[in-house]
Design a protein around this nucleic acid. Structure first.
Lengths: 156, 156
DNA sequence: TCCATTTAATTGACATATCAATTATTACTA
DNA sequence: TAGTAATAATTGATATGTCAATTAAATGGA
């Protein structure tokens, strides 16, 4: 019997391996979820990458060096500069050069940055429930543990 | 006990819901996998999106209209034009205007396009095994079925 | 038959991901 | 301490994803 994904992709043949199916399935599912979050964030004038940076900064509780932000984002280093540029233009973060080591650029949340995050907290939680709430807690636990295990094979 | 993902993201607090954890987990895991495939494709001069288009065309077994390709890609329509432009410049596909309906642009694999795909078949299968082969067949089945179920909640 | 509607694809504008190469600063070492 | 190596960040180039708006062709109804 063809899998649900196979039908969705209009594939004429079955997958060549379950590993392949899982990789495509992951990509597809992630795309679908991201599209919904992208829409939500846009209503508040920001993009998913920008939201992630703001959330990281709030989570850290203190200004972070650019590269530290990039690392937590899984973003390639050069990209971080433009991201922070745009956030600064939106006045959601600001840059600071510490005297101690003038190579570093610290990124700090502004009051407005905090406000945007605060406005998004509830809608984001609700969207998570809307999108994945039809899975039971047990299924979510299983899914999380399988994903953790999948990533464990990719050292680093 | 903090989850594996929570540590990886250096989060100071636990996730606010398992739904949230699953969404971030999915994004993170997908990113990691995509990075590896991007590297493999680059060695053959193409990008992941380009590979997907070539694979879709081979799978279809006949030339497809641009929008049909876009739909199977989960790509927003306007993006497809540039993608096909670049593939055409690489001479991996060609465009054709059918006489029957001159609004349509059919995209067709070239011999070189087929060759690139053929060269990638084995490496791609091997990479799937390398990245996800540490999961048992039973775990992969579970993962696939959970992902199918997750997507089922997002009616197209 | 003529015009409004629909459909297929494209364009232009912006945000992002990616790489290689560069600048500025600090650290190390011979 | 002079000079090289390492670190933090940036720049520039290309590819992609996203939207709104446009062009070109086909369809349908009065």
């Amino acid at each position: 019997m063809p899998t649900s994904l196979q039908q969705e992709l209009k594939m004429r043949r079955p997958f060549e391996s379950r590993e392949q199916e899982a990789a495509l399935n992951l990509a597809r599912t992630n795309d679908r979820l991201q599209i919904e979050f992208t829409r939500l964030f846009r209503q508040h004038g920001i993009t998913p990458a920008q939201f992630n940076i703001l959330r990281i900064l709030r989570g850290a509780g203190e200004p972070l060096p650019s590269l530290e932000v990039a690392e937590r984002l899984v973003t390639v280093v050069p990209g971080i500069t433009g991201l922070i540029d745009r956030l600064e233009r939106l006045e959601l973060v600001c840059r600071k050069r510490p005297e101690a080591d003038r190579r570093v650029v610290l990124v700090e949340l502004t009051r407005q940055g905090r406000a945007v995050l605060a406005a998004l907290d509830t809608p984001v939680l609700e969207l998570h429930r809307t999108l994945l709430g039809h899975l039971s807690q047990r299924e979510l636990r299983q899914l999380n543990s399988l994903l953790d295990k999948a990533r464990a094979g990719l050292e680093t």
